[in-house]
Simulated assay, not measured.
Amino acid sequence: MSRVVFVLLPEVHLLDLAGPVQVFDSAAHLGRPYTLHYVAERPPVRSAQGLPLSAGTEWPALDAEDLVVVPGWRAPTLRGGPAPGEDVLRRLRRHHAAGGTVASVCAGADALGRAGLLDGRRCTTHHDLQDELAARHPRATVVRDVLFTTDDRVVTSAGIASGIDLALHLVALRHGPALAARVARTMVVHARRNGDQPQASAMLRHRSHLDDTVHRVQDLIDARFAEPLPLAALASRAGVSERTLTRLFTRATGGLTPLRYQQTLRLERAEHLLGQGATAESAAREVGFEDARMLRRLRSRAAR
């Protein structure tokens, strides 16, 4: 069982908190072992939107598989915002030193900076606060115009709604992009990735649509992309004709047929295996090709 601990500071933004909470709660309902915890120094905590939030003062025992998240708060400047106490900062440092992951949304990056966790690492925050974050923590490298950054188990995200992207990314890292796509689909949001990555996983890149029939077929292809998946079988599982499935799939994914989508997943996995030192033959067989000829053909096509 993995614990996700949310540290609530005064004037916390509700969406900074609720976005990541919903992602991990949805992952738990899809069978992943998460429990959510909320801690504060002095509860109840008044949110930036006026809603009082209840939280305990006792922290659960943590191990390296657990995650601590600091949502952001409303303040005109970081200097004018809430100052987490030394106990919170010490717990953040201790959890990271023990191999755990710490994360922040928006202004929450300042709390990680106060704990010394941004020193020598890449980070980001809301665009209105980036200059001040860089000035307050000069040993950090503040990255602009990205949704989130990850650096040695320190994860920071930009403004408010980007906490959803951060949480989806962490789910993808821990459980694979297929689960992250299912969570995003449950939440009816686009499954986005970090803005400084040139290309997101195909499992996420082609999921930013609302066609439930196509999502069901993608779920099947995602789970069994190395197997033969005839169009007739996919259409039967979706309860539509082959022609209808092809039309819906092409429209939802921006021009891909189910076969091209499957080939894209195979190629992406094969590229990863090749990058890990696998031979072309072994990578091709691993992803479902009889030999390396088709893999070479698809790689050549993708490089054009």
Rank of each mutant, 00 (worst) to 15 (best):
P177M: 04
R121Q: 12
E11G: 01
A292D: 14
A61G: 15
D128I: 06
S208W: 08
S201Y: 06
R94T: 12
V23H: 14
L220E: 10
G255P: 09
P71W: 11
R293P: 01
R32E: 15
A238K: 07
A161R: 08
R301F: 03
A200K: 09
S300M: 01
D212T: 15
V287R: 07
D219R: 14
E271W: 02
A140T: 10
A233L: 02
R32M: 15
F249Y: 13
A48H: 14
Q263V: 03
L274H: 03
L14C: 01
S54P: 03
L229C: 00
L8H: 08
L210N: 10
D151N: 09
T141A: 12
F6Q: 03
H126N: 15
Y34R: 11
V105R: 07
P228N: 09
G116D: 11
A292T: 02
R304T: 06
P84E: 09
L267V: 10
E268P: 01
F148W: 15
H175I: 04
E271I: 01
L17K: 10
A200R: 12
S157E: 07
V189I: 12
V68T: 00
P258T: 03
W73T: 09
G277Q: 03
A61I: 14
V88Y: 06
R174I: 04
R46F: 00
T246K: 01
D212H: 11
D63H: 14
A278H: 04
H206C: 06
L210I: 05
R42Y: 11
A158Q: 07
Q130H: 07
P177T: 09
T150E: 13
Q199N: 05
D119F: 02
H29I: 08
D87H: 07
E281L: 07
A135H: 13
A140H: 13
T213Q: 00
V70A: 10
A184T: 02
L298Q: 03
Q218P: 00
S300L: 05
H209M: 09
